[in-house]
Amino acid sequence: MATNDGGLSLSQQRQRAAFWFLAPMLAALFFVAAWPLLRTIWFSLTNTLLSDLYGGEFIGFDNYLSIRVLESGRVIYRGTLVDPAWWNAVWNTVRFAFVSVFFETVLGLIVALVLNAEFKGRGLVRAAILIPWAIPTIVSAKMWAWMLNDQFGIINDILLNLGLIDQKIAWTASVDTAMYAVLMVDIWKTTPFMALLILAGLQMVPRDIYEAAKLDGVNPIKVFFKITLPLIRPALAVAIIFRMLDALRIFDLVYVLTPNSAATKTMSVISRENMIDFDKFAYGAAQSTLLFAIIAIFVSLYIWLGKVDLSGEGQK
């Protein structure tokens, strides 16, 4: 070993080792992620049908946008980019992502602050709040579908008993409430995770800062905004972006809870619908590709505007 590498400097040697350490991971990611994604992008440029996966022909960007001029001179636009159903899904997804991440962050902060305080039974409470997150999504979607049921659901029963509503609400059916239902379940399910990430950030804030502030008699609310928040900002930024990535891709919850409601149909759901249910495989692939592009743009913007240092390169 040593003689073979004799001609190399230490750092060259380390770089070579680094390459071999990285190779298996990169190979794994290439096969299970990059290759399938490239296939999907390729499919989106063809007219492939699901019933005939290998019979597609290259048709350029027609799945995204095609412009045809009829003999009468009328111009016809077709493709995802002019499909109102697609833009409805984009709007639903973006709205869902912003609202859910906003509430999850605020509630997550509150929960994290509570858990960061010293009190009896903290361990149990911490375990309790992790329950929603540990339950499989498919299961929690079914559980909530059951609780939100208009006739036998316990939610309506509670609200009726409390006098907050005067008649049973069809949560998942009505166009007005379907989105609230999905949001409610998602917030319930992912706030714990958010709280956990924020809690980790909070625990790195040195205790003596609080002690000092307390001695000086600074108002706790002021302490939070002037000291705590700036200190946990990096942790918060990373937590938000991870959640945002998840929220923009949301699929299973919507698919189980409100499968066909136009009010909640997200980009992932509509893309699956086209690929599989409607046999417009290439069209759905184009929508998947757009979804990926939208997420990528979104994340880049966030990192750029928020000056979030994700790679940590700047630290050293």
């Binding site: 990611l29 992620a33 490239l38 296939r39 999907t40 996966l53 699956r272 495989f281 998947s288 990926f292």
Partner: peptide, 13 residues
């Protein structure tokens, strides 16, 4: 890679 929508890689996988 962690941004990939599951549905987008399903067929390829």
């Amino acid at each position: 890679v962690s941004m990939f929508p599951q549905i987008a890689v399903l067929a390829g996988l």
